[in-house]
Every structure is written in C-alpha cells, then in structure tokens.
Amino acid sequence: MTIDVTSLDAIDVHTHVHTSVRETQGPGDGDDRFAAMAGYFKAGEVRKFTVPMIAEYYRERNMAAIVFGVDSMYLSGREQVPGNQEIAEQAALHADVLIPFASIDPHRGAAGVREARRLIEEHGVRGFKFHPTTQGFFPNDRMAYPLYEVIAEHGLVALFHTGQTGAGAGTPGGGGLRLKYSDPMHVDDVAAEFPGLRIILAHPSFPWQDEALAVAMHKPEVYIDLSGWSPKYFPPQLIQYANTLLKDKVLFGSDFPMITPERWLGDFAKIGIRDEVRPKILKENAARLFGLTGEA
C-alpha cells in the first residue's frame, strides 16, 4: 500500500499527533497547554487526534499528510505521547495517505542518535521534526550534528520549526520558552555544513521572514512550508517569492489540528497565488521532495 499521488488533491506536510491509540480522550496532563495553544490559533474547541483518526480525516478529503509528534523532554520533563514508534507503526497501517516523521530531542545525545537510526531502519520513518524553541537548542549547536548525519546518510528530511510559536504564547513568561532558537539563520549553518541534507523551514518565519526566504534562495536543499498561519496573513514578500523564485520550493502545510486544511485552503484560494503555481504548492513540490513521483 503506497500513496497514489495522481489521485490526491493535496499533500499536507505539517500535521501533529497529540494522543495515543492506547489512551482515551478526556482530561489529562497537558490539556491546559493544548487549550492555550488552541486559543492562540483562534481554533475554538479542538480535539486531539490519533494517527488512525488523522488518516481517516485526510482520506475523506482526498489528501495525504506527514504526521509527527514533538520530543521536548529536556525542557518539559515529559516523554512524547504518543511515541515515535507508535506513530510510525500506525502510519504504516495507513500508508495510502500518511508519511511518518519522528522527533528526537537533540539533548538525548548518543542514545537519541541510536534511536533515530533504529526508527529509520526498522520502522521506515521518512524524516525528523525539530522544534528549537520547545527543545531549547540552536539548530547549529554541534550537539545536534550526529542526528543530522544520520538523517543525511539515509537521504531523509529534517523539518525545523521557525519563527513565532503557539507553544507557551500568552502564558506567563511564554512558558519559559525562548523564540531566539527558531531564527532560520541558525538553520543556514546546518544547510551549509550538510549540503545533501534536505531541510524544510516550517511556517512563515515571523519575525524573520526575509531571513527564511534568503536561506531557501541560497541553499538548494532548503524548502519552506506554509503551515501555522492562515494564508490571509502571509506577508507580501512570501507571496511574491512563492509565485516566482521559490515556486518549486514552497509546500502546503496546515498545522492540523490547530489549523484545519479546510480553513487553510479556503483562505489560500483568496490570495494572489498564480494558477500555475497553486498545484506546485499544494502537491507537486512535496511529491517530488519525498520521491512520490519517481523523481529523486
């Protein structure tokens, strides 16, 4: 069972798994943080989705999606739920619509590197999600380089959160989280030192949008996903570059479940993206990046 790209309307490269198939929905650790983030996104009442629930949701909408959690053990003191292995195993059961990513906090050191290799070789993960702000590290900290080496060795993708974040937003002290870690210029160092590593800069990178565009322009293997913002708020220069110089390197991402693909696509239809560019952003660029078209 594989993804049939020709039958899809879109590929969402940025969705979050927030609960395990082994858990029941209801009050529990982290719900206050989850509700605060939903408030930041003006999303109303948002439910937590398991991997099978995401698969059903996207299958009904004729879309595929990349799924992941975020391992922020170093700062939060909590293990990721669900774990990477569950996400990969469940995604494998829905391989017609889902692509699994893993997330490993770079502070895990050598144990994290071993785990990354195991997840790739035994569970088929296709990339790794990094969230420098919630993981508390600069992407160009050499502590993380052994992880990048494993990702690059296997020809996979590293996706970095960039810019402002809903995590901790509006809470006292921002929950202790520091935005400085998510300046995309720190990822430029990674792209320079790992030239074969394919990288996605997640989100319009407020307040560093120009920096993100510069990195994607300068480094051939750096892409930008458009998740986490309603397109009606995209800055003009992002739309300009998406229409022209970066039309082959910009990707559709929603940040589901905080932003649904319906909400995102509805607003995307109203902004000034050229007709010939829309299918590139919605599907073709991601299909090429992940080798779903037979191209490298």
Rank of each mutant, 00 (worst) to 15 (best):
T260W: 09
F137Q: 04
P207V: 10
P195K: 05
Q240A: 11
V13Q: 01
M53Q: 07
T6H: 03
E262P: 06
I3T: 02
I273D: 00
L179H: 07
I99C: 12
G136L: 11
K129S: 05
L238Y: 02
A152I: 08
V222W: 14
L147G: 09
E122P: 00
G28P: 14
D32R: 13
T24K: 15
T162K: 03
P231M: 02
N140I: 14
E56H: 04
R142F: 15
I199Q: 03
T133R: 10
V222S: 02
E121I: 04
P279I: 11
V250L: 08
V150F: 03
T293M: 06
L159K: 03
D275A: 12
G174C: 03
V222C: 10
K42E: 08
L156T: 01
F256L: 00
R126E: 05
L226S: 04
F234P: 00
A43N: 12
Y57K: 04
A65D: 06
Q25S: 13
R59C: 03
A242M: 13
A214H: 13
D29E: 12
Q164E: 15
V17L: 11
V215W: 12
G124C: 06
P231C: 03
T244H: 13
R118K: 04
F290E: 00
A102F: 07
K270L: 15
A296F: 13
L197R: 07
A212V: 06
G170T: 10
E221G: 05
L213R: 03
Y40N: 08
Q209L: 06
I54D: 01
E211M: 07
K42H: 13
R278T: 08
Q164V: 15
A191S: 15
V187Q: 01
H218K: 15
G168L: 14
R61Q: 06
W208P: 02
Q80V: 05
G294M: 09
K283Y: 07
V150A: 01
K180V: 15
E115R: 01
V222M: 10
G168N: 12
L282V: 06
H14V: 05
Y74T: 01
T293V: 10
P220Q: 14
P261V: 08
F138H: 08
R118T: 05
E262L: 10
P27G: 09
P100M: 11
G173N: 04
K48S: 08
A212D: 01
T165F: 14
I66C: 11
K280Y: 12
R263W: 11
A65S: 13
Q209R: 01
L119E: 02
Q240R: 13
P172D: 00
A88H: 08
E211S: 05
L245V: 14
E221D: 09
T133I: 11
G175P: 12
D189L: 11
E86V: 01
A152C: 09
E86H: 07
F234I: 06
G109Q: 07
T133A: 09
